[in-house]
Design a protein around this nucleic acid. Structure first.
Lengths: 265, 265
DNA sequence: ATCATTTGTCTATTATATTGGACATATGTC
DNA sequence: GACATATGTCCAATATAATAGACAAATGAT
């Protein structure tokens, strides 16, 4: 979305693209907004946004919510999302795997995927600690910031990775710049060992574990992750990794046992 | 969607509308399809469908699935649907209410809403009988065919109801025609008594119970339904209705207790 | 009360999206 | 082989969608 460079001025953006930009924006904001605000914040012409919002309202893709003309994601999106979920029926197994990992380790377990060229937490199960570590489900995060990111782009070539990840995403939250070469080396290493663990780049107190969940062509379509305090993460590394890997395998096995259409696209 | 009459020939259909027509079509079909098939079955120009499908693929709204160029609802729709679900967080209470009703009565309990101008089962919990009655979740059904339909359009005026429901939907599955006047009378009666029960029109062996779940403005935004064999339905009518009503109330109560944005739009 | 900002509606203009149909392969049937 | 059907790509024509900007009402600040 933001990766697409429209250099030439005087260009118009296609309605459909703009529409999904609006939907994605609301998803990230996670609260109803006025068309005017939306237009301002995504940098789109107000008239266009008003027109599109009305169209989307008519289709049930957006609903009025929160009063004062504010709109939010609509009921129809829930229906469409449910149909997706039913077709690629991973919810049940996924939930079970997360619960298993979280209860075994006491740490926060996450199921993560790519959302376009970003990383996102699809489902999460918090651990049993008094102070639990959690993150926002559904939030899009630059791929290089995450352990899972090293696994999720493993099927791409070096140049594909460079093209795929927005250049700005190599700038870490603390302002430092991560050399793409370094990142790619980590990707390859993660691909070989089937795991990636590190002290998180996005904060100073967590250690992250990620293992791949393989799809049809042995591609990594998702990851199972564990987020723990650094000390515990280093101490129980072997145990945590084993737990994650067995859970990831059970997910993949469930998939291959299923007949008909593939679980993961 | 199909209700919108585009009489004038030589007219073009807007891409956005066509796009969501495609998405809805896939949702109903519930399986991956080739662009060509889609075009043929929804009666759209092939070139248009190919173009739109490619656009939707680029946006992650559609994904390749099932091989041979077939496409199905994409991952991004799941993300958007999840955000909707999280915002209008009814899933948990809803699931609990359904489980409660199903276990108390032993019959199939359903949570139903409008999907545009159709009726649809959003969530369902089957009963404990050896032969259980169930229906497809997510399938769109003409409003007049259902008990819930009498409640879901209760906030509309007579003429609004006539305009809202496609004329063809008054033709029942057995070919008979239901007089809109009769239907509207039933709607009003259901509105007054806060319930509607009848021997189902769509088959010969079920009895349906529906009670409203009220939203913000005391509008019926959803229904809780019970589907039972006719004999049992008539015998235990009072008991079943009481169970449904208490469950519906608990759902509505949970809603009002919540602060901030309203649970139901 | 005055001024600035926010919000929504409504045009006219023009860049372009939608479409019919031509073309090119598969795939299947007889 | 001959024929019909299914599938995907491409292009030119024109109907129309995206946009800038004018307008006005509502809101808020001072």
């Amino acid at each position: 979305m933001d990766a697409i460079i429209d250099n030439a001025i005087g260009k118009r953006t296609r309605g459909l693209d703009r529409a999904f930009e609006i939907l994605d924006f609301l998803r990230v904001k996670r609260e109803p907004m006025k068309p005017n605000e939306i237009a301002a914040q995504i940098g789109a012409p107000r008239s266009s946004v008003y027109e599109l919002v009305n169209l989307l309202l008519r289709n049930g893709i957006l609903d009025y919510a929160g009063g004062e003309g504010r709109v939010f994601l609509g009921r129809k999106l829930y229906f469409l999302g449910s149909a997706y979920e039913e077709h690629y029926d991973f919810t049940r197994e996924c939930e079970a795997a997360l619960a298993h990992v979280a209860s075994d380790t006491g740490e926060t377990a996450q199921f993560c995927m790519l959302d376009g060229n970003k990383y996102t937490v699809v489902r999460m199960k918090e651990g049993a600690r008094p102070f639990r570590i959690s993150s926002d489900v559904g939030l899009s995060v630059p791929i290089p910031w995450t352990a899972s990111g090293r696994l999720l782009v493993g099927h791409l070539s070096d140049t594909e990775i460079r093209d795929f990840i927005p250049a700005g995403d190599f700038t870490l939250p603390n302002g430092e710049w991560l050399d793409p070469d370094t990142f790619i080396a980590e990707v390859r290493q993660a691909g070989r060992s089937g795991e990636f663990t590190f002290n998180s780049i996005v904060d100073s107190f967590t250690h992250c574990f990620a293992v791949p969940i393989k799809g049809d062509n042995d591609l990594c379509v998702a990851t199972l992750c564990l987020v723990s305090p650094r000390e515990d993460g280093l101490k129980k590394r072997t145990e945590y990794l084993a737990c994650l890997k067995s859970a990831a395998l059970s997910l993949a096995d469930n998939k291959t046992r299923r007949t008909g259409t593939a679980l993961f696209s």
